[in-house]
């Protein structure tokens, strides 16, 4: 009847595991659209990634002598696995996924102290390791349904598990790559000449609808108040502004239209599912605005002038570095104090 408990005795309904479940749920429309446009690849990768991730997580928790099920049930490993699987090309071999998950979960997450202590987004660390180590496998994205017949389930499995290289028709350069490699063509000409763009409805074939799906998932999470609008809006607005400035009327020097940049590549996935990761992002709303704008800026710079066609992962990791600095300068003014606090922020 009597026990000593510190107040508060009431607790809000939001729980970390519930948050993670909602995030996984919100990723499903994107996965569905990816599967419908590019075939079974991403679905298989995702299942594979989740199994690997849970396996690593359980093994590490067992090694750290923690209750395994308690930690698995927070769903954070599943979210990391899903994000990584959605970023890897659909027909990348299974070991690519395994290595990616290895660098995401044991290295980027647990070597830094586990859940809540990782300074970098684990999924993005895994992705970058893969991108740098296996450029061949990582830049070959699948061709969308609008360009070619999709491989069946059996073929997909053989590409992933048997090491059979998908034929040229199945893989194709991404739209972002095409715009980047463009030399001398006006935007309109480029659009007409390349099927990735000519078969698109408004941005780039396949990718555009995937982005719409992620946008919808993100809006769902916003509606459930899982995070604030600050970071995504800041990132998308920055990207929009920069791409508008450098659109250059569609000349041969153009870096692509704003619509193209917003709905191609990993833009929406990044804006709503990656830069909103609380652990490696900024803590205050003002900080999140800066964080989002920074990612948007870096994404555009790398897309336009960098060596890699897409840049969300780089942008996020670079801003992860900057997050403590941003947090330092965006501390709120405490009630009853005249000046903002200026104390070193601790990042676990």
């Amino acid at each position: 009847m009597f026990k000593q408990l510190s107040s508060p005795h009431a607790h809000g309904p939001t729980k970390t595991s519930w948050v993670m479940q909602q995030v996984s749920l919100a990723l499903l429309p994107g996965l569905a659209v990816l599967t419908s446009f590019y075939g079974w690849g991403n679905l298989i990768n995702m299942l594979l990634a989740i199994i690997f991730a849970l396996g690593f997580e359980a093994a590490i928790m067992a090694l750290r002598k923690r209750p395994v099920m308690f930690y698995l049930s927070d769903f954070s490993a599943v979210v990391t696995a899903m994000l990584l699987a959605l970023s890897i090309p659909p027909y990348a071999p299974w070991w690519v996924t395994l290595i990616g998950i290895f660098f995401a979960i044991p290295v980027a997450k647990h070597l830094y102290g586990g859940m809540g202590f990782n300074p970098f987004n684990p999924a993005m660390v895994g992705y970058i390791v893969l991108l740098i180590s296996f450029p061949v496998q990582m830049v070959e994205w699948a061709a969308p349904r609008t360009m070619t017949d999709l491989p069946g389930l059996g073929e997909a499995l053989s590409y992933i598990f048997l090491g059979i290289h998908p034929p040229d028709g199945v893989t194709a350069a991404t739209a972002l790559d095409l715009v980047k490699q463009n030399s001398g063509l006006l935007m309109e000409q480029l659009w007409e000449q390349t099927p990735q763009l000519s078969t698109a409805s408004f941005a780039s074939a396949g990718s555009e609808w995937v982005n719409v799906a992620f946008l919808l998932g993100g809006l769902y999470l916003l509606w459930r108040k899982l995070y604030t609008w600050h970071a995504p809006v800041a990132m998308l607005a920055t990207l929009l502004l920069l791409s508008a400035i450098f659109y250059d009327g569609g000349s041969s020097a153009s870096k692509g239209s704003p619509l193209f940049h917003l709905f191609t590549g990993a833009t929406m996935l990044g804006a709503f599912f990656i830069i909103t990761d609380p652990v490696s992002g900024c803590t205050s709303n003002r900080g999140r605005l800066i964080f989002g704008a920074g990612v948007g800026l870096l994404v555009f710079i790398i897309r336009a002038w960098g060596n890699y066609p897409d840049a969300v992962a780089f942008g996020v990791l670079l801003m992860n570095f900057a997050a403590p600095l941003v947090d330092y300068y965006t501390q709120p003014r405490v009630y009853g104090h005249e000046k903002r606090s200026n104390v070193r922020i601790h990042r676990e």
Partner: peptide
Amino acid sequence: LPAPPPAQACIRCGLCAEACPASLLPQ
């Protein structure tokens, strides 16, 4: 008012800072 479940790791979500009426940084 069920007793709270065991504490999990802080994920720096910042909800506490948003809720704080004194604008402290609870995390």
